[in-house]
């Protein structure tokens, strides 16, 4: 089941958010040894805000197995604050363009079709929020995986070796055609997002 959660401090989703931050800690710090901060086994940073959206996928036992973080690029992002030099002509700045970061899938389910479900959920979320484009910094392997998912990934900057892996800033369109293509590839017939948790008091016409 995939949950769409608005806000890093959403009081209605404390357990889900904690599980998501824990998965990020396990993947990025314990497994990939990224040099980033963590707090009591939870990984979060200044880009986890009340404006941030998260996709959080749970397995049958209720454990968080996949997540992705989505931030509008008209606010400070990893792109604008840390990796601005990786974008030719400056980082994207548009409320209709999301930056995708901290995409993580639990090690034990990586050879399953979770990647396809979370990709579909990301496009569904973009369509719900009226977002037309997504961008991020991706390793070449992940970029290829996204292209094979049906996304038309376009480099928007010079690639660079980071931790021995070629990384590049890239963007891709998020629309109904791409969603349909990705669903077909992963044999997904219906919506991937099953629950949406807005911040209390927030209203959104979806």
């Amino acid at each position: 089941m995939i949950h769409l959660i608005a806000g890093a401090t959403n009081p209605n989703c404390r357990e889900l958010l904690a599980g998501m931050f824990r998965l990020r800690h396990d993947v990025f710090i314990k497994e990939k040894h990224w040099n980033i901060k963590s707090y009591n086994g939870l990984e979060f940073d200044q880009f986890d805000t009340e404006e941030t959206l998260y996709l959080v996928e749970l397995d049958e036992a209720g454990a968080v197995v996949a997540t992705v973080r989505m931030n509008p690029t008209d606010r400070p992002t990893l792109f604008s604050e840390v990796f601005a030099d990786m974008c030719h002509g400056g980082p994207p700045k548009c409320p209709k363009t999301w930056e995708l970061t901290r995409g993580a899938i639990a090690q034990n389910v990586r050879k399953s079709l979770h990647f396809g479900r979370i990709e579909c959920a990301t496009i569904e979320a973009a369509l719900l929020w009226g977002v037309t484009k997504a961008c991020g910094i991706f390793g070449v392997d992940l970029l290829m995986k996204k292209m094979r998912c049906g996304l038309d990934a376009k480099p928007i900057g010079q690639p660079r070796m980071i931790d021995g892996e070629s990384h590049v800033a890239a963007e891709f369109a998020m629309n109904g055609d791409v969603l349909q293509r990705t669903r077909t590839l992963y044999r997904i017939t219906g919506p991937s997002i099953e629950q949406i948790h807005l911040m209390p008091g927030a209203r959104r016409a979806a």
Binding site: V140, P155, P159, M161, S166, H167
Partner: peptide, 17 residues
């Protein structure tokens, strides 16, 4: 490393396309 980063990207784009 810079040349490798570019060539891996070129290769990836060519293969997937």
């Amino acid at each position: 490393p810079d040349a490798q980063a570019s060539l891996y990207l070129i290769g990836a784009l060519a293969y997937e396309s």
